[in-house]
Design a protein around this nucleic acid. Structure first.
Length: 284
DNA sequence: CGATTTCCCTGGCCGC
DNA sequence: TGCGGCCAGGGAAATC
């Protein structure tokens, strides 16, 4: 379940290995989700960027060079996607579900393995994300100035949905997945089912800070998955996610699990109370 | 048109 | 030990 911190970690690993390389050959699993990988053949990788959970690799070939605009190789890891550069064209043994491979001009190969096939690959004209609606409507990066209290309040204001559902939509802020949504809401002491438009100013401010904090910590640790594999607990993180029945690190109460938007949702009912919205326009 | 539900996938886990 | 059944979950499509 790569979320923003995991994707950023992967981006940092790939960048020095891919920038400047030309893709000399490619192959892909027979599926519309992965076949676009072939379209990158013959192109040079100019950069390795990230937006939310999407990896964006600007690429260019002779044709696009003369035409002026480049393309982007876009990779989403879905639930189980893994992306790495191998020293040769031989895939290591652990790669049991290869969905795409790009052979590079230095003899190495970029592999994409994805057990559940929730991942996706696209090659599109640079900036043309119309065919990827979530990317097209992606909210600001959590560490960008554009992700500020005013923006979050405005984004949250227009919806009656549960705040967690809003966070997972990627439109309010980019890159928050199930784990970090739970952790940010816990830190901000906001109930995951609180209607988005009923959050007070203070709660919105806490939530904004908590989202940035959680994702930043995730990056610092190299991704929640890696944290999960380490001796537990590490800095009480994750504090609630995956800890049903354990005692809350804040109050000692019991962590509960519910389902929101078909996602397992962990929270502390006493630290994160559902609050009645203040009526904004008093009805006489 | 916004919100909700369904679907895509397969390894892992549970119970018998 | 083997096996059926069910769950997880990001994002897009279908449906409400």
């Amino acid at each position: 379940m790569p979320e923003l911190p995991e994707v950023e970690t992967i981006r940092r690993q790939l960048e020095p290995q891919l920038v400047g390389r030309t893709i000399v050959d490619a192959s892909a699993f027979e599926s519309d989700k992965f076949l676009p990988a072939l379209l990158a053949t013959g192109s040079r990788i100019d950069d390795v960027r990230r937006r939310g959970k999407y990896l964006l690799l600007p690429i260019r070939d002779e044709r696009s060079e003369s035409a002026g605009g480049g393309s982007e190789l876009i990779v989403h890891l879905g639930m189980t996607g893994r992306l790495w550069v191998g020293p040769t064209t031989d895939a290591p043994e652990g790669a049991g579900h290869l969905r795409a491979r790009w052979d590079l001009d230095d003899g190495r190969t970029l592999f994409f393995d994805d057990v559940r096939r929730f991942g996706r690959i696209a090659v599109l004209p640079a900036g043309d994300h119309a065919s990827l609606p979530t990317l097209d409507a992606l909210g600001p990066e959590p560490f960008d100035e554009a992700f500020n209290p005013e923006q979050l309040r405005a984004a949250v204001n227009g919806s009656t949905r549960a705040i967690k559902t809003q966070l997972l939509s990627q439109r309010v802020v980019a890159g928050v997945g199930n784990i970090y949504a739970d952790e940010a809401l816990f830190r901000a002491r906001v109930h995951p089912q609180q209607p988005a438009n009923s959050l007070g100013k203070a709660a919105v401010d806490r939530l904004r800070e908590a989202i940035a904090w959680a994702l930043d910590m995730g990056i610092a640790q190299g991704g929640a998955k890696i944290i999960h594999q380490r001796a537990y607990p590490v800095d009480d993180f994750p504090a609630v996610h995956g800890r049903e029945g354990e005692s809350c690190v804040g109050c000692g109460g019991s962590v509960k699990k519910i389902t929101i938007a078909a996602r397992g949702t962990y929270f502390c009912p006493s630290c994160q109370r559902l609050r009645q919205p203040k009526p904004k326009t008093p009805t006489v």
